[in-house]
Write a protein that binds this DNA or RNA. Structure first.
Lengths: 227, 227
DNA sequence: AATCTTGATATTGCATACAATCGCTAGTGA
DNA sequence: TCACTAGCGATTGTATGCAATATCAAGATT
């Protein structure tokens, strides 16, 4: 596989691991040195990450880890809520034994993590649970979109899950979602997923708003993201 | 602005104009010659387009205009339907006089195009109408996602709109959608938009299926798209 | 006859070199 | 003291060259 692709993964991982924090500059020379390659594949990786919205590449001004405004972040969570509820609706409509088993297994893993109060493990299992729902939609393209957005938001979601109490509540919501999907109740599955996701976004946004004191809420931000 | 960005636009335009057809090879050397630049910015443009899902860049095997399978195409239309109905739902909830006026204006333009039986004009006005709805959602991120997907599907939509009868029907559906949004009826707006979009997808898929005789419908295609 | 192998050719991937632009600092003037 | 300008250093953008690999065709082998 090409270096550019490997680098793309590595840089993405580094960003998601919090090694580069939002606003940090990703300068080509130091990345090149760090990974022992020339600037060329680094540039290629950065441009791809930029096209996917993970980072901001500003012409002639270098790339930075994108810093979504609180408003933008809320918009992203709201969009995630819409996409996830679409997945849930389709999953309820098209449930197969395989999908069912996959969601069931992921849910059990989440239960286990909660029993152990292992929030880091829950973070991983939670992801699997949601991905199982995406796949259960039996729409590969929609699932891909959901994966991508989930990944973009995971940094923010992780912080949210640290709140102890939230773990149990999240698990209970999962149970409700699973129940609705199994019952074939599209509406209920959609609405439960919607609030499950949106609540996280709202809580997180509240947190951010509280921290930054930024209540300006500019309407049409358009930080070179999803294009 | 950097050449790579300009080239990205140019290549995208060329693809959308049908100059390069699905499956065509986009080889770096000839593109470089055509645009009078070196291969470097061409590569950068191609990689970005690849990350956005417009083309397929296969390591060591060059880039081709992506050829979504009929199944994939249907999945894309279904996803578009879900996203658009989300926009409609939010638009109904958050309607402002400005958004209303914008949709109204776009709708009138569509009417005019239908009166003149100008399908090429309708194609453009239709796009504006839909984009007005995206914006009316007052969720900039969701709107961006909708723009991007709309753009990716426009080639296929255009063919669809050639069908004469479809123009008038489309316009009538628009009227119904607008009415529902204005009434603040989220459910109705969402469901009308959903079928408006999905019907196009179904018709198109039928057409493609009829043409290609490909009824295999592979389930998990995952053509390096939305990641 | 069909398949596999082998080699030549073309194309991609990466490194390096150079050009262009941006940001920063120091110096000048008000 | 502050604002503004000019020049320098640093960083990005593009071109070119070389290495690596895929593709294709022709020949060998079964």
């Amino acid at each position: 596989m090409s270096q550019a692709f490997r680098l793309k993964q590595s840089i993405e991982d580094a960003v998601m691991a919090g090694e580069f924090r939002p606003g940090d500059r990703l300068d080509e020379a130091s990345l090149a040195e760090r990974f022992g390659v020339s600037r060329t594949p680094i540039r290629e990786a950065l441009l791809q990450l930029g096209a996917e919205g993970f980072i901001d590449v500003r012409p002639r001004r270098g790339a930075i880890v994108s810093v979504p405004s609180p408003t933008r972040l809320f918009e992203m969570f709201e969009t995630m809520a819409e996409i996830e509820s679409a997945c849930g609706r389709l999953a309820a409509r098209r449930l197969t034994p395989e999908s069912d088993a996959a969601m069931e297994a992921a849910h059990h893993a989440c239960e286990e993590a909660v029993r152990n109060a292992d929030s880091e493990q829950y973070y991983a299992d939670n992801r699997n649970f949601h991905e199982a729902i995406y796949r259960a939609s039996r729409n590969g393209f929609l699932a891909d979109q959901a994966f991508a957005l989930h990944k973009r938001l995971s940094a923010y979601r992780r912080i949210q899950l640290r709140a102890r109490n939230r773990l149990l509540q999240s698990l209970q919501e999962h149970a409700g979602i699973l129940e609705a999907i199994r019952a074939g109740d599209e509406q209920l599955a959609a609405s439960r997923l919607h609030s499950h996701v949106l609540v996280q976004g709202e809580r997180f946004s509240d947190m951010v708003l509280g921290l930054t004191q930024d209540r300006s809420v500019p309407a049409g931000t358009r930080s070179g993201a999803g294009r």
